[in-house]
Amino acid sequence: MGAAPRTAVIDYGMGNIHSVSKALEATGHKVRILSHPDAAFEDFAPSHLVLPGVGAFGEGLGRLEKAGWIPLLRHWIGEDKPFLGICLGMQLLFGESHEFGTHRGLEIFSGSVVSFDPGQGKVPQIGWNEVRRTIDHPLWRGLPPEPDFYFVHSFHVRTSDRSIVLGETLYQDPYPSFVGRSRVTAVQFHPEKSQRTGLALLKNFGAL
């Protein structure tokens, strides 16, 4: 492997990014936390981009917009540069969300974000659950076919585009918990909280 990945972590005020940054550092990434796509971003010249985030869809999108990230994200993803969305950072890539009203997402992937059904089980889903490999991808390298990852969420993605579903998880019904197309990837779970399994995935991301 060549030089260490230079990884920008987008800080848009949606949840703690301390653990994400530290886990990336522990797996060989050179990390910079950035709150605007400004001169500091240019100076750092990242090779990899991570969009983390926990919280409400509408607020997250609004904050990304306000900080000026949307055009850069579209451009970055359009050029198929290494990208990893985590949790809310995954959900924002989809078409629309029904969390506290209807919001349009970035529409990078087709699909929507819907709530678990409180009538069918406890919401949020908190804890370790399996991600079953549906399509092979470099991010899966070295991992077992159904590893457990740590999840904390009340909303999940639904999509009819099976070509982007790299892994799925069963909670109430099976849903896509790991999506991607080429080097643009996203996970609903928290690799930064999934012990060595999560670190293995972050390391693989660095090699994209």
């Binding site: 301390h18 653990s19 530290k22 522990a26 928290h190 909280k193 999934s194 012990q195 999560g198 670190l199």
Partner: peptide
């Protein structure tokens, strides 16, 4: 701890 240990 959170800098060294990657679990909830």
């Amino acid at each position: 701890t959170a800098s060294r240990v990657f679990l909830p």
